[in-house]
Amino acid sequence: MAATPLNQIAEILPGYPFRGALKAQADGNAWAVQVRHVSSREWVSMDSAARVVGGEALDRVQLGGRRRPDYLQPGDVLFMARGPRNGAVLIEEVPEATVCTPHFFLIRLKPGSDDIVDPGFLVWQLNHGEGRAAIAAGRQGSLMPSVPKTELAAIRLHLPPLARQRHLVALFRGADREAELMQALIDNRHREVTAIGRAMLDTVRNG
Rank of each mutant, 00 (worst) to 15 (best):
F105T: 06
L159T: 03
P84K: 09
E151M: 12
R198N: 14
W43D: 05
R205W: 08
R19Y: 08
V77W: 15
N206W: 05
V99C: 03
V77S: 15
P145L: 01
G112A: 04
D47E: 01
D47K: 02
A10V: 03
L143D: 08
R177V: 00
P111T: 04
A170M: 04
H37K: 01
H128Q: 09
S142M: 11
L72D: 06
V33Y: 11
T98Y: 09
L126S: 09
A50P: 00
A97Y: 14
I155D: 10
A179V: 09
P148L: 09
A30M: 04
R189L: 07
H128S: 01
A137I: 11
H103L: 03
V38H: 09
A170R: 14
L162K: 07
T4E: 00
A175E: 05
L63Q: 00
R41D: 05
D47C: 02
I9M: 00
L143K: 13
I116Q: 08
I12D: 07
A50Q: 01
H103W: 06
N188F: 12
L22D: 03
R51F: 15
F79W: 13
R41H: 04
R132S: 13
E11C: 04
V35S: 09
K110A: 06
V89W: 10
R191S: 05
C100F: 10
L122H: 06
S45F: 05
E42L: 01
A136G: 14
D70M: 07
S40D: 08
A10S: 05
E42M: 02
A195G: 07
V99D: 00
Q140L: 11
G20A: 07
L58G: 03
L78N: 11
P148R: 09
R191G: 02
R164D: 12
D114K: 06
L171Q: 10
E151A: 15
I186F: 15
L122T: 03
R68F: 11
L90K: 10
K149D: 11
L185C: 10
A24R: 09
L72M: 14
T101C: 07
Q73N: 13
D187W: 07
P119N: 06
T150Q: 15
L171T: 01
A49N: 15
T98H: 05
Q25V: 10
Q125H: 02
R156C: 14
W43V: 00
A153E: 14
V44E: 04
A153F: 11
M46K: 00
P161S: 05
E11Y: 15
D59H: 14
W124N: 08
L157F: 04
M1W: 00
S40C: 02
E192M: 12
T4L: 03
G197Y: 13
M144L: 11
F172C: 11
G65Q: 05
L122N: 06
H103A: 13
V99G: 02
R60F: 06
K149L: 13
R82W: 13
S48Q: 11
M46L: 08
L6Y: 07
K149E: 14
V204N: 12
V53P: 04
G54Y: 02
V35I: 09
A175L: 11
R41G: 04
A137H: 14
V38Q: 07
P74V: 01
G65W: 08
I135W: 09
